[in-house]
């Protein structure tokens, strides 16, 4: 392991050098593309240069689209065969992301690479070419509760970066970058720090088994009328991994088309609809409970750690001001016999 210091210009040159081999993704600001007019959208995208890296604002959508795109063609078909498409660009990708999101992708790994016993080939081929460059995160954004979720730290990265004013520091964990980083920088001693306290704290339920009465407890009822099933909490979440499969065919040739998989979410209508019109979670409160349990209870039962990484995006984006973190606290209070208010 080694560390280097750079001026911003020097590091921009390292960045440009890396781009000769890798495509570099990171949070990027799209001016005027925000939900409201004259607001911006921050999302993960290929960065043309270091200047495009957005550090001041949390991305409203997570880097999960790099491994699990919102809409991905899984087959091309005609009447008699299905064929798996090649990845359009097969090169290696460096992604600049924060510890919570690195931990978030580790959650996705559990689902896509392990659950059910078979690896998902579409996820796997995108995941394999991904290299984590961790953006050091010393100060949390609004609504973050990564510390409570123990996802504030990680060592799952190849390079860690500190952006401080017009200085950049790098810690190199993977030898392959040594030459490139060493050339342009001065040896330093940087080792990343992590957020150790968030404004928002969450108390997780400690029960081994969720009491059955919590499933239709009245604490969920308030969400029946509050949640509008818009699905933003699911789409923004770095760990939500649900999808649906749809076929579409080309208007010009009705024999050919694509099978695609698109994000779905347990808050959206139709997620649990069955033949005959039966739907398992019609009420939004039930959906809230389903999501909450998955994030902080079910997943842990299956994989040994919680799904939610406390990135706080769901709280950032909910148009109805439903706070998931507050919901977890309420759940824990209720479990301890306290008030569900």
């Amino acid at each position: 392991m080694s560390a280097y210091d750079y001026s911003r210009e020097e590091f921009a040159a390292v960045f440009a050098e890396l781009q000769k081999t890798y495509q570099i993704y990171g949070p990027k600001r799209f001016v005027g593309r925000g939900r409201f007019s004259d607001t911006d959208l921050v999302r993960y995208a290929p960065l043309a240069s270091l200047d495009e890296l957005e550090l001041a604002e949390k991305s409203s959508l997570s880097p999960k689209s790099l491994v699990f795109p919102a809409d991905e063609t899984i087959f091309h078909f005609n009447d008699h065969e299905f064929s798996q498409p090649q990845l359009k660009e097969n090169g290696e990708i460096i992604v600049l992301l924060r510890p919570c999101d690195i931990n978030g992708i580790a959650r996705l790994d559990k689902m896509f690479l392990e659950n059910g016993g078979q690896a998902d080939p579409y996820y796997q081929r995108r995941r394999q070419r991904l290299h984590f460059f961790m953006i050091e995160c010393r100060e949390s954004f609004e609504n973050c509760f990564c510390v409570s979720m123990k996802s504030n730290t990680t060592d799952n990265y190849e390079v860690a970066l500190r952006f401080a004013g017009d200085r950049v520091a790098a810690q190199i964990k993977d030898q392959r970058y040594e030459g490139l980083f060493g050339q342009k920088g001065r040896a330093g001693s940087f080792s990343p720090e992590f957020v150790s306290e968030n404004d928002k704290q969450v108390e997780l339920p400690t029960v081994e088994t969720m009491p059955a009465e919590m499933f239709n407890h009245k604490m969920w009822e308030e969400y029946d009328s509050r949640c509008i099933a818009c699905g933003r909490c699911n789409t923004s979440c770095v760990t939500c991994s649900c999808f649906s499969t749809v076929d579409l065919f080309y208007a010009d040739s009705r024999q050919c088309g694509e099978r695609r998989r698109v994000w779905d979410g347990c808050h959206l209508d139709g997620f649990s609809d069955m033949a005959g019109g039966h739907s398992f979670r019609k009420n939004k409160g039930e959906r809230m409970r389903f999501k909450a349990f998955h994030k902080i209870y079910d997943f842990r039962k299956r994989f040994g750690f919680d799904m939610c990484v406390g990135c706080g995006r769901c709280d950032d984006v909910c148009p109805e001001y439903i706070s998931f973190s507050s919901c977890i606290n309420k759940l824990s209070r209720t479990l301890k016999g306290g008030s569900d208010k």
Binding site: F30, G32, R33, G34, R35, F36, S37, L41, R43, S60, L61, A70, C230, G231, R232, N234, T235, S236, W263
Partner: peptide, 11 residues
């Protein structure tokens, strides 16, 4: 644009 949960519609 306001409705889309994933900003597939933008201005």
């Amino acid at each position: 644009v306001l409705a889309c949960p994933i900003s597939a519609w933008t201005r």
